[in-house]
């Protein structure tokens, strides 16, 4: 549960329509194809700029809008290792954990585009290697989310546990 990658910085209120436009998500369940359109309405050809393991960094209310689980799935399939934001919209936050995409609320003002970021999910630690700065995590994940994430997502969690366990 350790991630290291280059930051791609976005602003506030990035909604799930921007992450993956409705016009693509209704057509198929082919996420590798959809991943090519990640965030294209606000950043054309963003997909081509991603190196596997890169970190998506944003301001507040990331993932607001539609409940489409395609949004975190497309981010994951595009090669993004984790998403950091000051805050997330709740459905997106849950969907991300459920598909095994790590998301954490932290002070992203301390991260600039291109910075090298280190994340240790076990210790809840985020470090900006470029700036040599420890990044404060606003709220740790509830235990059930950590367990779902450790299994790799909700499907794997339920296959193992058979039911929701508190």
């Amino acid at each position: 549960m350790i991630f290291e990658g280059k930051a791609h910085k976005f602003g506030d209120d990035i909604n799930t329509d921007y992450i993956i436009s409705g016009k693509y998500k209704f057509k198929s369940l082919d996420f590798r194809e959809m991943a090519k359109h990640l965030l294209e309405d606000i950043y054309p050809n963003f997909y081509e700029k991603i190196t596997p393991g890169d970190i998506l960094v944003a301001g507040k209310n990331f993932g607001c809008g539609s409940s489409r689980e395609q949004a975190p799935l497309v981010i994951k399939h595009a090669g993004i290792g984790a998403v950091l934001a000051k805050s997330f919209a709740r459905i997106f936050f849950r969907n991300s954990i459920n598909v095994g995409l790590p998301v954490l609320e932290c002070n992203t003002d301390l991260i600039d585009d291109g910075d090298l970021i280190y994340i240790n999910l076990i210790n809840s630690e985020i470090f900006n290697k470029t700036k040599n700065l420890k990044i404060e995590i606003f709220s740790p994940l509830p235990e059930i989310m950590v367990r779902i994430l450790k299994e790799g997502g909700l499907v794997e969690y339920l296959k193992k546990e058979g039911d929701f366990k508190l």
């Binding site: 409940s67 689980e69 459905i91 969907n95 459920n98 598909v99 909700l154 339920l158």
Partner: peptide, 9 residues
């Protein structure tokens, strides 16, 4: 509102 995995679960 929830996501698809939660609906399935």
């Amino acid at each position: 509102g929830v996501g698809s995995s939660e609906l399935a679960s």
